[in-house]
Design a protein around this nucleic acid. Structure first.
Lengths: 112, 112
DNA sequence: CAATGATACATAGCCACCCGAGGTACCAAC
DNA sequence: GTTGGTACCTCGGGTGGCTATGTATCATTG
């Protein structure tokens, strides 16, 4: 099932931060990882993620460094900053509040 | 806590359809109801919802009729169509798939 | 060895859409 | 008579996801 792109908005940032909270990664790796872990439900596009990574770096939430080319492939590896960790906590909480609200509304008046 | 507006995207349509699946309502009523049920977590704006209702009506998912004015207040009451019910089922399933995917990713590799 | 496809980065432009601001109209309260 | 609630509506700006395109390297396949 394809998820409407509108739903993706707002979820990208916390997911990116969460992945980098696990360990340092490069962009393409995150795209493939999200795709794999969700069995293709979330199909991230390069044109979406790379600008996001640049934005997060500009905001000081992540840092990057070019890795020495492996097999002729250059990779930019991203790390989560302390500020990024704080942001992750906040975004995660926002996501919980949001998703619980939507679940409540979709469940109907019985739960309200 | 204010939910970033980006998160709202994609959730509005299933919520509108779900509310109208409960019972017929008018637009302003839905705005206040969502606000109340989520304790203000989802703060719907008129500039967002009215265009959505017009879109859904144009797509045949809902119908509308002007109610006889009560206390000088005119209300446009919306009903869910059969097509709207089908759309609601699909959008709800999409939401579940999406939210479970995000939860999985935010939980980290232990669940993957 | 040419073409395809995966890896890995990047950006420009299109288009969808949320929201602030503004507008109309009626009523109650102070 | 001004404020604030109800109840509808629309325009314009800004944000941002996605398609398309580009560069470069490597493995695979015909």
């Amino acid at each position: 099932m394809a998820i409407p792109s509108e739903l993706l908005r707002g979820s990208i940032e916390p997911i990116l931060l969460s992945l980098l909270n696990e360990r340092a990664m490069h962009g393409y790796e995150m795209i493939k990882l999200v795709n794999a872990r969700t069995s293709g439900a979330l199909e991230w596009k390069e044109g979406t993620i790379y600008p996001w990574l640049h934005r997060l770096e500009a905001d000081g939430l992540i840092t990057s460094e070019w890795q020495a080319p492996v097999d002729g492939r250059r990779r930019k590896v991203y790390h989560l900053t302390r500020q990024g960790q704080r942001q992750l906590a906040q975004r995660t909480q926002e996501w919980r509040t949001f998703s619980e609200s939507v679940n409540l509304l979709l469940a109907g008046p019985a739960s309200a």
